[in-house]
């Protein structure tokens, strides 16, 4: 069984400690939720786990007992880690299908290039994007919601072992949130372990979480699935 184990992780940016000793374990097929106010360190945690530059980390990140905290971001991706960016960059001139084909090659999944075109078309429709998005430049002139859906199509094609999903709901309408929620549950059923960062009460209601964490000032200060109901009623004042 796949396992992502974070132990006592500290993440700093320009000598400022943002994440201050976080530990959690996600198993294959589980969905974990992180709640917290803006600036609590949620996104920094996700980016630190992924190995985004500018973030210095201390502590342990193990994927299936392999320590990955010192390896490059592309190596973490090839081992099965995926970050759904909150604000993905635009890649002028790089078409979506080109990125995904190269991604599959880099992951050693060349076999999945057979029938890729049809599969990609299905995935685009599943996430609510038109099939013409395959030929569009990655994220160029996309709306906020389209960028998020585009990130989700990459997740569905690359099929990582673990996905760090950072505020996918921003920019999405009510129906899209519902669709995305069901896709997240489907990914988990198919074996992907998920760490979801969101504030969206509608999304929180629609997903069955294995574990829920509250983050504040870079630390997990509370955890437990039962907290979700309290949060839905009281918002962040539940922390007080």
């Amino acid at each position: 069984m796949n396992k992502l184990e974070i132990k006592n992780l500290h993440v700093s940016v320009e000598d400022m400690v943002i994440v201050n000793g976080v530990s959690l374990t996600i198993n294959e097929g589980e969905i974990h939720l992180i709640l917290g106010k803006n600036g609590s360190g949620k996104s920094t945690l996700a980016q630190g786990i992924m190995g985004i530059s500018n973030y210095e980390t201390k502590g342990s990140i193990k994927l299936n007992d392999d320590e990955i905290s010192e390896i490059k971001i592309n190596e973490r991706a090839k081992k099965g880690l995926f970050l759904l960016f909150q604000n993905p960059v635009e890649l002028d001139g790089v078409k979506n299908h080109v990125l995904l084909r190269q991604g599959l090659r880099s992951h050693g999944k060349e076999k999945e290039l057979v029938g890729f075109k049809e599969k990609y078309k299905e995935v685009l429709m599943e996430t609510g994007l038109n099939e013409t998005f395959a030929e569009r430049d990655v994220n160029v002139n996309f709306s906020g919601g389209e960028k998020k859906k585009n990130e989700l199509t990459q997740l569905l094609i690359l099929k990582p072992k673990f996905a760090l999903i950072d505020e996918i709901d921003s920019g999405l309408d009510v129906d899209s949130v519902k669709n995305v929620s069901s896709i997240i549950e489907k990914c988990a059923k198919e074996g992907t372990g998920i760490l979801l960062i969101t504030h969206n009460p509608s999304m929180i209601k629609q997903i069955q979480f294995t574990q829920v964490y509250f983050m504040e000032n870079g630390k997990i200060i509370n955890k437990g699935k039962e907290i979700v109901e309290e949060f839905e009623k009281k918002g962040f004042s539940v922390l007080e």
Partner: peptide
């Protein structure tokens, strides 16, 4: 970095760009 987060190494990422 975004391309590398999808598994491409640095050389492949620069080539794609």
């Amino acid at each position: 970095e975004y391309l590398m987060s999808r598994g491409l190494n640095e050389e492949e990422a620069n080539e794609v760009l």
